[in-house]
């Protein structure tokens, strides 16, 4: 970027890109801090206050939904990670036709439009008496996470050299021992990435949470969407809740960025 115009042009581009990414965030943050009067023309709110945050945090409905979201996300992460890791290990190592056919099936699952199952999944969950339970909702999420997780994880396993396993097999190790003892320690970065992916997929999910919850397990996305559809729009408070909802994401933000970069690419390219 030499020459007279290069540097200012790049600076301008960077500025515009940041404006694009940050304007809604900054504005919602301002509204979440606004006092009595909301701005009706370009400008800042008259008075700033933390009252809206206090209001949101002391609302039983809100902190329950936050807790529900976290519990369900943890559960969904556990189920999907523990079931997809062994499967993806097999998919990475097996040469069999059955395995590659199944792998394609999982790709099909992965690209499926969720909406097509909205009512049937409700019926199935009702049959297993899993509606409005933590397990039910997290299984609902898991169904969408497992296919993605398997494809990502397979990408990581493909990178683990096979020589180690071959010597272990000579020592008479079973696939289970191979997986836990030899391969997994080498694939830990992949596992972390997949767990994070699973956690955030579950934490952000809306449609299935809407369908599979009644009251006790209502998650944050469902609760927040309800505020807009209820025609009871209290912008200050729901902006504050929006800001609070980012905390788990922000806590892992740097991991999220680096693992997502790698993880997403493996999922795309290596699968």
């Amino acid at each position: 970027m030499k020459g007279g115009w290069g540097v200012p042009l790049v600076a301008l581009a960077i500025f515009l890109l940041l404006v694009w990414a940050l304007t809604p965030v900054v504005y919602a943050m301002l509204i979440s801090l606004a006092g009595f009067d909301l701005p009706t023309k370009l400008g800042l709110p008259n008075d700033l206050t933390f009252a809206n945050y206090l209001d949101a945090l002391t609302d039983r409905e809100v902190y329950r939904a936050m807790a529900n979201s976290l519990i369900i996300a943890v559960l969904a992460t556990a189920i999907s990670t523990f079931s997809s890791i062994p499967a993806s290990y097999v998919f990475s190592r097996s040469q069999s036709r059955v395995a590659s056919a199944l792998l394609l099936l999982f790709l099909f699952f992965r690209l499926f439009p969720w909406i097509a199952l909205a009512f049937p999944i409700f019926l199935v969950m009702a049959r297993f008496r899993l509606l409005d339970t933590y397990l039910g909702v997290s299984i609902g999420h898991t169904v969408w996470i497992i296919p993605t997780a398997i494809w990502y994880m397979k990408g990581f396993f493909d990178l683990v050299p096979k020589e180690l396993e071959e010597s272990a097999v000579l020592d008479g190790a079973t696939p289970f021992v191979l997986l836990t003892k030899v391969v997994l320690p080498l694939a830990i970065p992949g596992m972390v990435a997949v767990s994070l992916l699973a956690f955030f997929s579950s934490y952000t999910e809306y449609l299935y949470s809407l369908i599979l919850t009644r009251v006790h397990t209502v998650t944050l996305p469902v609760l927040m969407a309800g505020y807009l559809s209820e025609f009871k729009v209290e912008w200050r408070k729901i902006s504050a809740i929006s800001m609070l909802s980012t905390i788990p994401m922000l806590a892992f933000y740097s991991y999220l960025l680096s693992y997502m970069r790698r993880g997403l690419l493996y999922g795309v390219m290596k699968g």
Partner: peptide, 24 residues
């Protein structure tokens, strides 16, 4: 390592049981 895996499994199952036993 097998022991760790078993323990992990037990913890997981325990967790699942605990959470599902919370009544609706």
């Amino acid at each position: 390592m097998k022991g760790i895996a078993t323990r992990a499994l037990v913890i997981l199952l325990g967790l699942v049981f605990l959470l599902t036993s919370i009544p609706a």
